[in-house]
Amino acid sequence: MWRWLRALASEAHEACGGIGVGAVGMCLTGNFALSMMIEPAMQAPVLCQPSLPLDDPGAIAMSDEEAAAVRARMDQDDLTAQLYRFEGDSFCRAERLAAYFDRFGDRLTEKTLPDSAANPSPAPFFNAHVPTPHSVVTQHLIDAAGTETVKAVEEIIAFLRSRLHP
């Protein structure tokens, strides 16, 4: 389904060299980084509040075949993915997390932040349309040393560095 992103990862890896590429998917693109694992260049997927499909909180936006191919790649190359969300997120609920763990189990590391860690004053759009803490590394980020959201950003950067620059 996401062939063009896989092609982009391959092209970026070819142009830049190195071990491979990483990607951070957020919200509607949250699972894209994981779907890109079928591309051999993809080494470091991060899922931030994956929200699709919107109409089924206990599902992931991947076909069974695609999920099996991703899991096989992760097992073959000993790769993991990271997933971040807020505890009370109404778009990326606990049921979705359970669905990811059902498919990817020990290949997935997750961090669920408490809602109290979220920036209480995101942009007006978020106040109007996103009823719960949602965007871990953007709108609901509290950009101050030592906060849980900054720690999440630091973990993501460390993960990308460890996979792409060991």
Rank of each mutant, 00 (worst) to 15 (best):
M1H: 15
R3Y: 09
R3S: 11
R6K: 12
A7H: 10
A9F: 07
A9G: 10
S10G: 12
A15Y: 10
V21W: 06
A23C: 09
L28T: 13
G30R: 00
S35E: 14
S35V: 12
M36I: 01
M36A: 06
I38N: 07
E39I: 13
A41Y: 12
L47H: 05
C48H: 12
L52V: 10
L52M: 15
L54G: 05
D55A: 13
D55F: 15
G58A: 06
I60N: 01
A61E: 13
A61Y: 15
S63G: 13
A67W: 10
A68R: 10
A72W: 07
M74T: 10
D78Y: 03
L79Q: 11
T80F: 11
A81V: 12
Y84L: 14
G88P: 04
D89R: 02
D89I: 02
S90I: 13
C92N: 07
R93F: 08
R93H: 11
A94P: 09
D106V: 00
L108F: 03
L108V: 07
E110L: 13
K111L: 15
L113A: 02
L113P: 03
P114N: 04
D115K: 05
S116T: 12
S116A: 12
P120M: 04
S121W: 14
A123R: 13
P124W: 04
P133Q: 05
H134E: 06
V137C: 09
D143I: 09
V153D: 01
E155I: 01
A158M: 03
A158F: 08
L160W: 10
R161D: 02
R163P: 05
L164E: 03
L164H: 04
